[in-house]
Design a protein around this nucleic acid. Structure first.
Lengths: 150, 150
DNA sequence: CTCTAAATAGGAACCATTCCGATTAAAGAA
DNA sequence: TTCTTTAATCGGAATGGTTCCTATTTAGAG
């Protein structure tokens, strides 16, 4: 189930909008990096994004990809999940969602749950600091890897 | 509030026990790396552990620290949290707990909640794979960093 | 069209982690 | 205790992801 055309369209519009209001130049490279994420569901890492975008923008540099991802995150256009093996993974799905992480292949799957979006935070936490975001991480063997094991 | 003497004692015993049953040699280096974590509450990273242990075992190598941490994790003696900036952080607290991560300083604080230990996992997740562990991550500004900002 | 600040390319640098080959030492057997 | 086996260690080189640096390019304002 790929991201729908309409959703990609919507995300690209938001990108253009954010560039304008944020005073960012809408460079070809920037646009293509975001487009890559707007249509992805696999939480690709920077290297994967780099390889894919290079097909369309052959001269793009890794540095640009990394810088652009950081900029997009600052602007709230993409989400960076620091999950496994120190390799950041990105997605353009800004709805509140949670992650199922496969302990074998490292793949990250989104899932949704209104209940989990609004967790009962214990009082003791207020002593630690002010909570700005919450996220649930589930770990286990994904269906694919479970199949391979047999 | 440091880890109590009794708790450290208990953890060291478990370490010795696990080495025996797991067929691991209880080397001086191994013991000191674990001792460092048994008494820590700060989720130190490998480099920090290395620097501390080196006071007691001056010739210890980074490789040994990294290998030992991996071994201890395999044996279920320590817990590795992959949280920020690709730097693994370790703790010897094996009770089910959750993390409050400061978005400014990156420090990780544990907190406990029986309610959060047993989350209602949405049915849709079963299509993704078999859940083996659950964890809640809260992000925000810790009290310390909030103070500094003012 | 011109100008300027922002952004990019490409390669060097950086840093955490892992690998490798030679050496050491834990622990079971004698 | 001493011997033997083999896991574990050391230290430095290698790796891989990410960031930095500087010259060059370009988006967008005027």
């Amino acid at each position: 189930m790929a991201v729908s055309k309409a959703e990609i369209e919507r995300r690209m519009k938001r990108f253009a909008e954010t560039c304008r209001t944020g005073g960012l130049k809408t460079t070809h490279q920037r646009m293509e990096v975001f487009r890559e994420l707007a249509g992805a569901e696999t939480h690709p890492d920077a290297e994967t994004i780099y390889r894919h975008v290079r097909r369309r923008v052959p001269a793009i540099s890794r540095d640009t990809v990394y810088r652009t991802l950081a900029t997009l995150e600052e602007q709230g256009l993409v989400h960076k999940a620091e999950i496994v093996s120190g390799r950041g993974r990105y997605d353009a799905n800004m709805e509140h969602h949670h992650h199922f992480i496969c302990t074998a292949c490292g793949r990250v799957h989104d899932f949704y749950s209104p209940t989990l979006d609004d967790l009962p935070i214990p009082k003791s936490v207020s002593a630690l600091g002010r909570v700005e975001s919450t996220q649930v991480q589930l770990r286990g063997l994904c269906t694919n890897c479970a199949k391979d094991k047999r």
